[in-house]
Structure formats: structure tokens, C-alpha cells
Design a protein around this nucleic acid. Structure first.
Lengths: 232, 232
DNA sequence: ATTAAATTGTGTCATTTTAACACAGACATG
DNA sequence: CATGTCTGTGTTAAAATGACACAATTTAAT
């Protein structure tokens, strides 16, 4: 199979930062490693690119093995390619982040990988360069969510505007004005009033919305400026 | 050196879309291949990752070999990982774009690589998946330039506002309002009036500005909204 | 039953930003 | 010194933003 005279062939790994939202905090789905190397330590979910597998196929495989879900929203971040980043053997890691509805994934799949939801803010130290990966992923999430409606990927089918606001407040770790936020979100016309109201909560019940998926797809690449510059 | 039992080790290539601007059109620095495979055809500048070389080092090496320049602005775009993207042998390509001042690079370096500046609009067909790479790179350049002041990387040290506007018009392939553009650019306070004026041209001479590099670095990640949504 | 506390939905208003457009000054050419 | 072309700056109405206030809904406590 080697046809180029060039000799440097290396392992290609994929590492994934899986974000979730429990209604209060941003969470990461992290692996408590029960395999070598670095057994017992925490890491991102990852895997190696296989010989007859497209890169995107590998990404979907890894996400499926972890969550039991297909068609997950994910985005490539960058490749990590320091010579010594993996002390075992030289490995290029193509790093991406994924956004999932924390309640929709398959518990058994996560258990099989020894994966746990951990608060982003109180995450443990991770192996190799995975801490840096998480930091960059969070930056990228903040960047993207300020301009495009990706936040919805973290919420259930139906959700309220206060829920959505709490999500944005978790992402940017800072409070937002309720009234301006509401106006901003509604002005996108991406939300459809389901006519129902939130049944939980001990005060006034909020309107349940769902995403206008067609419109969402159509204008996904349009800028929305959800979060202003001064905010970030 | 193989320590993981996993067996799939592949070549890692880097491919670079080099953008330039001649005052009128966006240009690409493309290679007329005088080597196999696909000798005689056009391609992006690229190279393989070496065994003891960090990924960023390899990127800088490839750009240096092509242009004779160091500290070039570049940005990773994404990895291309289809199994058959290179018919010779499986190769993962980490793709990035670079912005250079078209007049500042070393001619001999480019000649040694058989590289030529080609109008983006009238570029030839490229090998492998390089056409797709260019399309995605242009999208990314448009995205980034709408929000961040990367356009300056394509211009000489000193430049006029009409020059800058022509650059933006080339990037977005559409005309901009002169007065609104000027106001937008000046409101960033990224430009320093050099006191000099453009000596070329047959009409009123435009003010030469230079970039406030310190401010540029400091607020590079701030949003500037150079180009409005409706524009894109 | 009434009230209090918490939360939701909507509205106001001054300020800023934007988009569309007009005019005057500078410069080479003839 | 008039003309054509390009540059710099100004104007104005409309839209968006940021900082607020107020009324309605709901549960729990009195």
C-alpha cells in the first residue's frame, strides 16, 4: 500500500469534546479510562482513524459508540500535532466538538465507555493535551454561539426562553438581560410557539417553543449576533 | 517506534491556499507540478509532515519554502480525510490558508517551486480534492474578514482606504458604498494616518495609512462587523 | 381567601448604529 | 482654467441596542 517514497506514516486519532447542558451548567462527557495508556485518569472520548474509513465516518462512529446517537451536531476545531503530544507513539489528533441533548443519549453506550457527565467548571485534569483541547473548544463554542443558533442543539425538542437564556448564561458565564435577550431571540423568528406551557416550576409557567427546523437549516450561516461584542 | 497495537498509520500532508491581492483581484499562488504524481497539472502548495516535526513547524516550513517569508498569517481550515482522496496512497490532508503581501515574497522561492500567481476567478482545475479546498478556504476567508481585520495581511505596510475597499470588494465580489466603508474602517481606530499621500494615480491623492499593530494584536478577536449580514 | 415571593411576558425611551445619499476639494489633462 | 475622475466628509431617516418599569401568573405561606 505504500506508494509514496516518503516514509513518515503516523497514527491519526480523533478526540471529541462532547458538550451537554443540564438546565444549569455546561457539562462535558468525559472518560474515566479503564484501559491503557493512562488507565485511571480522565480523558476525552477518542479513537483511531481506521484504514478504510473516511474521516467523517470515523467521527460519527466515535460519537455513536459513546452516545448511541446518529446525526449529532459536530464541528472540527483543529488538529493537534506536536511530536510528543502522545508519549506512547506519535499521533496526530483531529479534534472536534459535539453538542448533544443531555437527556437524549443512550445511557448504556456511555456506561460501556465508562463515560460520565462532568461540570465544565469542576472538570478534572485530563491526559495529554486534552485540557488545551477543552479550552479551545469552549472558546470556539462561545464564538460560534454568539453568531449562529447552535445553542438549540443542547436543548430538548421543546424548551422555554428562560431555559435558553440560562444556557447562554452558562456558555458565557455571565448574566444576560432577560428582556433584551427575549427580544433578540424572538426577532430571529426561529422559534415556534407550541401553545403549551412548561409544567414544572413553582411560579408563572413559561411558553414552550420548538425550533423552526426548516428556517434553522436555511439560515444557519446567517449572522444573528446573539451575544454582543462587549459581552464576550 | 510502533507502540500502540493499532495498525493504521498513514501519511499526513499539509496543503495550503495562499491568497494574495494585486490591487484589483484576489490571487492564488498555485503550483504547476513538475513532479509526480499528476505532473503537468495544477495543485495547491503542499508537503508531508515529517517524523520529528510539529504540525505548526511543518506549516511554516512549507510556507517558507514557497515564499521565503516567516511569520506569515495562516489559519487551519479543516482536515480532508476521504479514503480515496489521494489515489496514490491514503493521505490525510490538513488544509490551511495563508494571507501574504503579494509584493513582499521571494520570487526565487516561488520559481523554485514552479509557483505562479493566478486570478482566483480564472483558476485552472486542480488535482485531487484541491478545488474543494479552495472553495472552502474562500468561504472561510469571507467569514473571517467580515468580522476581523485580517484584510490588512494582504496589503503593503502603507495603504489607502480606497485600496482597502478594493480588497474587500474583491473578497466579496460585490461593490461597497465608499462612504459607509470609510466610516466603518475609521471607527475601528486601527489605522494611523502617516501624513503622506499616495503618489500614484491621476486624480486626488489618497491618504496613506498604516496599521496600528499593537491595537490590531490586542483586539484581533473582537468583532468588527466590517461586512454586514445582508452583504454576505 | 388573601398575601407574598418568585418568575414570566411585554413595553418604553434615549442613544447608537446603519444605510442611503449629496456635496465640496484635489489633481492630471488638455 | 475648464473638465473628468477620484477622495474626504456630511446629512438624515430608519433600525437596533441597552437600560429600564410594569403587569400578569403561579405556588406557598399566612
Amino acid at each position: 500500500m505504500k506508494k509514496y517514497p516518503h516514509s513518515t506514516r503516523i497514527l491519526v486519532a480523533l478526540d471529541c469534546i462532547v458538550f451537554g447542558f443540564d438546565g444549569e451548567q455546561l457539562k462535558l462527557l468525559l472518560i474515566k479510562r479503564n484501559f491503557e495508556p493512562e488507565m485511571g485518569k480522565w480523558s476525552l472520548m477518542g479513537g483511531f482513524l481506521e484504514s478504510n474509513e473516511d474521516l467523517e465516518v470515523a467521527t460519527n462512529r466515535i460519537l455513536y459508540d459513546l452516545t448511541g446517537l446518529k446525526d449529532i451536531y459536530f464541528e472540527e476545531i483543529k488538529s493537534f500535532g506536536k511530536v510528543d503530544r502522545d508519549p506512547v507513539e506519535r499521533t496526530l489528533s483531529v479534534c472536534f466538538f459535539a453538542l448533544i441533548n443531555i437527556h437524549a443519549h443512550d445511557q448504556d453506550s456511555a456506561r460501556a465507555q465508562n463515560a460520565y457527565w462532568i461540570d465544565l467548571k469542576s472538570r478534572p485534569d485530563l491526559i495529554f493535551d486534552h485540557n488545551e483541547m477543552v479550552n479551545i473548544a469552549l472558546e470556539r463554542l462561545r464564538y460560534k454561539a454568539a453568531l449562529h443558533p447552535i445553542g438549540f442543539e443542547l436543548l430538548p425538542e421543546q424548551f422555554t426562553i428562560p431555559q435558553l437564556q440560562k444556557l447562554y448564561e452558562a456558555i458565557y458565564d455571565s448574566p444576560l438581560d432577560r428582556r433584551n435577550f427575549s427580544r433578540k431571540i424572538l426577532s430571529t423568528h426561529l422559534l415556534i410557539d407550541t401553545g403549551e406551557k412548561n409544567q414544572y416550576g413553582t411560579t408563572k409557567k413559561a411558553i414552550l417553543y420548538k425550533l423552526d427546523k426548516e428556517k434553522y437549516q436555511r439560515q444557519f450561516n446567517a449572522f444573528h449576533y446573539f451575544i454582543s461584542d462587549s459581552m464576550r
